[in-house]
């Protein structure tokens, strides 16, 4: 599931900026380190982040689905085209430094996916809107960000409706890859066209409700930004700065 998953963990209750800051921190850390072992420590940290929010099970599947094709590609490309030394895997000469590079890039991808899917799962869009509104972020920006974050759950219901409707018209799902490919048209085309047909109404409805009004909106229940929240975000900042200082200064000195 890609989107918000209600829960009662400390991360769910935290100020919405805190999980976002942690996810961003993990992303920066994944690029701050370059040894395969260190990258996978960041992956473990991202998994711990997900587990502490109680969403590891929910984010693991989409993360794996999104990462697997890239992992396979990375392993093949770097393993076959990388330099010496090589190890023989059956008839194939596999590059050791290439394999290490694949581990680094693949690990970064895994860490980023885990971190941001966890942030998506723990930050309630409604609370994020309130938090941004309370900070005086212009509504246009709030809307763009939050509607992007919620696009998957919003499309799910419509996809379900269209799948149901086309099956009832005799469309068979599954079967050979070619049959699956053919079934895509009747599913994707109405998804896009019916969404487009409604864009006008949506824009109108938002306009009527003051979505385009200038001036500051009222935040009704701004989430509390506790001392712990600020401390966590500060710690993330310090860790990231330290890691990059080590990377650029430590390596040179």
């Amino acid at each position: 599931m890609i989107g918000y998953v209600p829960g009662a963990s400390a991360l769910h209750r935290a100020h919405p900026y805190t999980p976002l800051a942690i996810a961003t921190g993990l992303l920066l850390m994944a690029f701050a380190v370059s040894a395969p072992g260190a990258v996978w420590v960041v992956v473990a940290a991202a998994a711990l982040f997900a587990a502490s929010a109680g969403v590891l099970g929910t984010v693991l599947r989409p993360a794996a689905i999104l990462a697997l094709p890239t992992w396979v590609l990375l392993t093949i490309l770097h393993g076959l085209l990388g330099g010496a030394p090589h190890v023989m895997l059956g008839p194939v000469a596999f590059s050791v430094p290439g394999g290490e590079r694949a581990l680094v890039f693949g690990g970064r991808l895994a860490a980023i996916l885990l971190a941001f899917l966890t942030a998506l799962a723990t930050v309630s869009p409604a609370r994020l809107v309130e938090a941004m509104t309370a900070r005086g972020v212009p509504f246009g920006r709030v809307y763009l960000l939050v509607s992007t974050l919620t696009v998957v759950p919003r499309l799910r219901a419509r996809v379900r409706q269209i799948v149901d409707a086309q099956q009832c018209r005799g469309l068979r799902l599954g079967g050979s890859p070619l049959a699956r490919l053919r079934a895509l048209g009747p599913l994707v085309v109405p998804l896009v066209l019916s969404a487009l047909a409604e864009v006008d109404e949506q824009a109108l409805a938002l306009d009527v409700r003051g979505g385009t009004a200038r001036g500051r909106r009222t935040a009704l229940e701004p989430p509390e930004d506790s001392r712990a929240d600020r401390a966590v975000r500060l710690a993330v900042l310090v860790a990231v700065v330290a890691a990059y200082a080590w990377k650029f200064l430590g390596a040179g000195g």
Partner: peptide, 28 residues
């Protein structure tokens, strides 16, 4: 309009927040 799902802000997780969206955007 006749179709309610096109008229939601998509930003609220409670009915109260949905209904309050309009007056809140006026900064009252």
């Amino acid at each position: 309009f006749a179709t309610p799902w096109t008229q939601l802000t998509g930003l609220a997780t409670t009915v109260r927040a949905e209904v309050a969206f309009g007056p809140a955007s006026l900064g009252r």
